[in-house]
Every structure is written in C-alpha cells, then in structure tokens.
Design a protein around this nucleic acid. Structure first.
Lengths: 115, 115
DNA sequence: CCATCACTTGAACACTTGTTCAAATAAAAG
DNA sequence: CTTTTATTTGAACAAGTGTTCAAGTGATGG
C-alpha cells in the first residue's frame, strides 16, 4: 500500500492489532497511580515491610490525611493492599508485579541518561 | 523499637533504604508519560513498526498537532525515538524496556480483576 | 456506654495537563 | 530562491490532580 504522500514507507492496509479499550484504560490507570513521586516513595517503603498510615506519614514528614489519600489512589489501582492488625491497618505491596514495574522504570531511568 | 501507639508492629529505627531523588523523579516522569490512553495507543502502534506523525494521526483519527504533542511527551521521557527518512520523520519505540513496562502493566491489569 | 485512637472522607484551593487553532519551522522539489 | 509538504510550537481553554483542613467513621479499651 502506498501512502498519500506517494512514498513507500511502512504502512498498514488495516489498523495494527489493538488491545481492548478496557485493558489499555486499566494500564493507563496503573501508570497514573505510579506517576507521583510521593506515591512511589510509599511503594519503596512498602517494598521493605508493612506499615500503617501513621508510620508512613512520620517517614515522609507529611500529614496523615495526605498519606491516606495517596494510599487510597494506590489501593484503587490494586497496587497495595491492607490488613487490619489490632488498632492498625497495615499496608503492603499487592503483588510482585508491582515491584517489577517500579524496578523496570528505575532501570530505564538510570541506564540511558548518559548522552 | 516500639511505636508511639505502644504496639510491637513492624518499624524501622532508621528510615528504609531510599533511591535517589533523581531516580524516583525520572521513574515518575516515565510513568506519567505512560498514564495517558492515547499515548499508550501510540506505543501500541509503534510496537508493530515505524510510523510518521501523519500516519499515526490517520490511525487514531486525531489532529496531527495533537499526535505531535503526544509524541513530544513520549520523546521527552525517552520512550520513543525518531529518524528522518526522506520527507518523513519515522517514530519508533526507544528500546525493549519500554515494551516490557507496558506489557507488565497490561498483565497486572488483566490478571487480578476477578474478585 | 463513653472516650480515645487510627484512619478515612469531602470540599476547596492552587496547580498541572491534554487538546486545539493558528502560526512557525524544516526539509525537499521545482 | 520559491513553493510545497511534513511536522513542530505557542497560547488559550477546559478538565483533572494533589494537598490540606475539618469533619466523619470505626474499632478498641476502660
């Protein structure tokens, strides 16, 4: 097939294979939740153990309600989960997938920066 | 160490190990670029071959300038690269790392939805 | 029960983002 | 050069986001 411009560069007669809208929207949602530095810092902490909101707030130096809102976003995308233990709700990384996403991005960020 | 609340749950005497601010900010930037459905659709197309802006605009049905702005964001985070070939600038995925990020997120999105 | 501790939620604010139009480059062809 | 084709950029707008304060929930312990 020939492009309007007349050139013979790469072109598809049909549109390329597409993921479902739901899948792409879900992926975008996950990336959006991961796109905030304070939220990534929370995941970084949770990668090393379980923490309650109060403790995470103490570690970051932010308001408890601020940290709670951040956790809400992470939880809505199933990136973290929580369990009540006594008075506290302990948060943890939802699964290994999440850690790989973060590690992969960090790797990409650090590797190819020297140009 | 004992938490202010008196409970003996997980706690660090020192703050947990932290990545550098630059690394985390870079990762957040990458995730932010990936957090938009139309931009993910561009990556999906580029995963299957090189395309110029005009063609990507035709595939998505959007304005050329809109697609160009999307590519600008993706390029600023080094997720895509471009090469001039004749009259056209052909865009392509920057490296395999990017594809893994997207695949990983899609996998996470599709897996654990059945609850 | 009542009070307390741990956490969440709603509303308001400043701030950021994605899209679009119009104008501006940039390379190629005549 | 001048024109044409391909793509980028700037400005403006509507829409979305993160933080905070204050008020709300909910489980725990006396």
């Amino acid at each position: 097939m020939i492009h309007p411009c007349g050139d013979d560069h790469h072109d598809f007669a049909e549109a390329p294979t597409r993921c479902s809208d739901e899948a792409v929207m879900a992926a975008a949602g996950i990336f959006k939740a991961l796109s905030d530095v304070p939220r990534l810092r929370i995941l970084e902490a949770l990668a090393q153990g379980e923490f309650c909101v109060t403790e995470l707030a103490r570690l970051s130096g932010d308001e408890i309600s601020t940290v709670s809102q951040r956790l809400r976003v992470l939880k809505s995308e199933r990136l973290v989960k929580d369990t009540r233990r006594g008075k506290h709700k302990l948060y943890s990384i939802a699964d290994q997938h999440v850690l790989e996403l973060v590690r992969n991005a960090l790797a990409h960020a650090q590797e190819k920066h020297a140009v």
